[in-house]
């Protein structure tokens, strides 16, 4: 088997064609991506030009779904909700993850660090469905959180945290937190203590050192974390569906519902919109990280 494989590779690499072997090795991955991913996109792209008429699908080439999606204010509220939820979740998880990652990076005792890592990543071992149900138990009117709030005297009748944006955001922050912690931990662990010592030595106190040295140098980690969490939020389905209970309408939930009632052109248009905006967000965040790291300081404005 191995010999046959190497003979095939040798066939391609004979003479001056080393690229052929590399291509050969990449072929399975390329084939899979090409068929499943690109093919799926193309088919969806084709559907987006079809016509949906009174519950039935009509093969066509027109841009009616696009026009409706981009002009009808209803769809813009959908887009707005999706991006608002994603932005809130990203913001809160960054706010929670940064101090956590900062502490973990500074820990000297490996045992404690391992334990904290495990605790942070443990939720990933449980499926999103189970976690969302768990949050339903915690967040509902008679749930644990409200019981706690009432006993603490924060409220008389409990807060509404189920079937609204608040609940969805809380649950999503919990689910996506590890994806924010990991890239941050990565850059902060690599951060050079000598740079901090140098800043102290040059007269900068702890806060100034953080904002001029540690924070700008962790911009790459922040960018990765924000990219991952934001795009995961844009495409999150299970949690908004279960916790939102149909009352928090985000694009993935909307797409799911349209595919159910065979309005495939609209589902396709919304999907393409999600795809394009995810890429756009990634690019913008990358540029932002560059700016945070270099431009600001290069202008002489520390």
């Amino acid at each position: 088997m191995m010999r046959a494989a190497s003979r095939i590779v040798g066939l391609f690499t004979y003479g001056n064609r080393p690229w052929a072997a590399q291509l050969l090795l990449l072929l399975p991955a390329i084939a899979l991506m090409g068929v499943v991913y690109l093919g799926g996109l193309l088919i969806f792209g084709r559907y987006s030009f079809d016509l949906y008429d009174n519950g039935s699908l009509v093969r066509d080439w027109n841009g009616q779904a696009y026009r409706a999606f981009l002009t009808d204010p209803y769809y813009w509220t959908l887009i707005g909700t999706t991006f608002r939820v994603a932005a809130k979740v990203t913001f809160w998880s960054l706010l929670l993850a940064y101090p956590l990652a900062y502490c973990m990076a500074g820990l000297r005792r490996p045992g404690l660090k391992q334990t904290l890592l495990l605790l942070t990543f443990l939720p990933l071992l449980v499926s999103a469905v189970v976690r969302s149900y768990g949050w339903q138990l915690l967040l509902s009117r008679q749930g644990f959180m409200n019981w706690l709030f009432i006993h603490l005297g924060l409220t008389d009748s409990g807060f509404d945290m189920m079937y609204n944006e608040t609940g969805v955001v809380i649950a999503l922050v919990h689910i996506f937190l590890p994806f924010m912690v990991f890239p941050l931990l990565n850059v902060l662990s690599q951060s050079d203590n000598q740079l901090k010592a140098a800043a102290h030595d040059l007269g900068a106190g702890k806060w100034r050192t953080f904002f001029t040295i540690t924070f700008p140098l962790s911009a790459r980690g922040i960018a990765s974390g924000v990219q991952i969490v934001f795009t995961l939020c844009l495409t999150a389905f299970t949690t908004p569906q279960l916790i939102g209970g149909g009352r928090v309408m985000t694009l993935p939930v909307f797409i799911y519902q349209r595919t159910l009632d065979t309005n495939w052109p609209m589902a396709a248009v919304a999907s393409i919109f999600l795809f394009v905006s995810s890429i756009a967000v990634s690019l913008i965040v990358n540029k932002g990280a560059d700016w945070l790291m270099f431009r600001r300081t290069r202008q002489g404005r520390i």
């Binding site: 050079d192 740079l195 010592a197 800043a199 040059l202 007269g203 290069r298 002489g300 520390i302």
Partner: peptide, 28 residues
């Protein structure tokens, strides 16, 4: 260290990688 009027040059120099020469020198 940040309350003292002495300065240190580190073994690995510890220049700030995200700043140019001017801003490194001007930091203090």
């Amino acid at each position: 260290a940040y309350g003292r009027n002495s300065n240190m040059i580190f073994q690995q120099l510890a220049l700030f990688p995200h700043m140019d020469v001017y801003n490194n020198i001007a930091y203090g």
